[in-house]
Simulated assay, not measured.
Amino acid sequence: MIANRRNVLAGAGGLAALGLFGVSAQAAQLGAIGLQLYTVRELFGPDPMGTLEKVAKIGYREVEYGGGGYDKMDHAALRRTQDRLGLKAPSVHVPYEWLLADFNAVVKMAKTLGADTVILPYMNDQHRNEAAWNTALKDFNRFARDLKKAGLAFAYHNHDFEFTVKPGGVSLYDRLLKETDPALVKIELDLFWAITAGQDPAALIRRLAGRIYAYHVKDKRADGSMCAVGEGKIDFGAIFKLNRIAGVKHFYVENDECPAPYLPDITTSFNTLRKLTF
């Protein structure tokens, strides 16, 4: 009899079997830690190669492209720099409008950078009503199907509005989960924004188990402001323990409001996550 893969993972302790953590489920640690480059956009825009070098020197081994004008840069040159530094870029953030306007260019860019997943990061106010959102969800399904044909995956990244905007009494997030194909439209779960919207992260992760591609990891102070990981009150250890059921592959540090000079903030986040056991 061939053992069911899910049972094999469970029997192996889940976390260790997924290859993302340490050898013991009792003292697990993160493997590769990533950085969403939007965090350091003010550095990356004028000096992309130098910024990648600084990020790699801190210890990051993955980056996620987003902001800083990366879409108009020389993607082959960025890839050469990544390869030299030992950096992988599993995913890229691409606006809805660009996916609609020049899908083939998105595919080419993602593949050049070495990405396997295209992530839609944000939807403007004009899309946050029932009719426009339903139209967008059809596009999400289409993007996902077409990206799969091109050898890429698709995911959606949340902010808080998806949970708090509820046309007809149903949140935009609930509509997203119901109306998109769970096998094709994956989730990049921004923990800060979900918590800010009043979500219980544990309950949400259990609901999304098997569908979460990546976490965005940033901390939240008692006053609600965003900060480096370790300077706030979010219990990331408790959240990451749930990877036994969630199976998340990528953990991207992000601070939308990262203070200048930027590098100390992302260093604090990296060091906190590198030392974290759970």
Rank of each mutant, 00 (worst) to 15 (best):
V106D: 09
L43N: 11
I234A: 02
A56K: 04
E257V: 12
I195N: 01
A260K: 14
T272C: 07
I187C: 08
A77R: 15
I212T: 10
E254D: 10
I239G: 01
H157W: 07
L120K: 03
A246S: 06
E42P: 15
A101Q: 07
D116E: 12
R6M: 08
F154H: 05
K138M: 14
L176F: 06
F44Y: 15
L204G: 01
Y262M: 14
V8W: 13
K149G: 09
R207H: 10
T272D: 09
K149Q: 14
T81A: 15
L52E: 12
L242H: 11
T180F: 02
M109L: 08
L18C: 06
G66V: 10
S91M: 12
N4D: 15
A136L: 06
A131S: 08
W98G: 07
R274E: 15
L99T: 03
V92H: 02
D235W: 01
T135M: 04
Q26W: 13
L43H: 00
H75M: 15
G67I: 09
S225Q: 04
R80Q: 15
R142L: 14
N129T: 15
G237H: 00
T196K: 11
S171E: 01
G68V: 13
K108M: 09
F240K: 08
V92F: 07
R61C: 12
